[in-house]
């Protein structure tokens, strides 16, 4: 508001204005602000959240197995929770399912075996990554379909427009 007088005065003045100094000043102030922000963030926070799943021990000594275990837990849905993986939930069922995953892995079963074990009992709902079936082909092909539609339409429009005459625009004309 308070700058409107100035804006009016500057209007129509297309030549470079002695504004660069002020902007540089502004730029350096911004950099200083961001640096200060970054530094101020280097403090210790203490914050709250609900009880969630923390396992007492690593399930596997072998880091590769542990990674497999965590990845599997991350794609299995806790069925009693609102919308959580069994890795995140502390619900008794989630604990049981994690134990089941652990035991099956120790018995040398593959990830697919474990996924199949879960879907045989709980249905596809238990998998956060929907399996490829007739009912999900469309879902899984959505990224490709949408990308093709988007890029296809863009290509058609651009080609059409590139054949039209290019007019000088008002901004340039003034």
């Amino acid at each position: 508001m308070r700058r409107s007088g100035r804006a009016e005065a500057a209007r129509g003045n297309g030549a470079p204005r002695p504004d660069a100094g002020r902007l540089a000043e502004f730029g350096s102030a911004l950099v200083a602000f961001l640096t200060a922000l970054l530094l101020s963030l280097a403090v210790t926070l203490a914050v709250t959240g609900p009880a969630f799943a923390i396992e007492a021990e690593r399930a596997f000594e072998d880091p590769a197995l542990q990674k497999r275990y965590e990845d599997l837990n991350d794609e299995l849905r806790c069925l009693v929770c609102q919308n959580q993986t069994i890795a995140d939930s502390n619900a008794p069922l989630a604990q049981d399912l994690r134990r089941e995953v652990r035991e099956m892995m120790r018995a040398g079963r593959t990830d697919d075996d474990i996924r199949q074990f879960m879907t045989e009992r709980y249905g596809d709902f238990v998998l956060y990554k929907p399996p490829m079936t007739a009912r999900t082909y469309l879902l899984w092909s959505a990224p490709v379909i949408l990308l093709l539609i988007a890029l296809g339409s863009v290509a058609v429009i651009v080609l059409k427009r590139s054949r039209k005459p290019i007019e000088p625009d008002p901004e340039e004309a003034t």
Binding site: D74, E75, R77, N83, T85, G123, D124, F125, V126, L127, Y128, K129, P130, R135, T136, L139, W140, A142, P143, V144, L146, L147, A150
Partner: peptide, 19 residues
């Protein structure tokens, strides 16, 4: 009535990269 499925982070994380 085609059954229940979950579409979660593994789906979105993968497909969102396409565009």
């Amino acid at each position: 009535e085609l059954g229940k499925i979950s579409v979660g982070p593994p789906y979105f994380n993968a497909v969102f990269l396409v565009p």
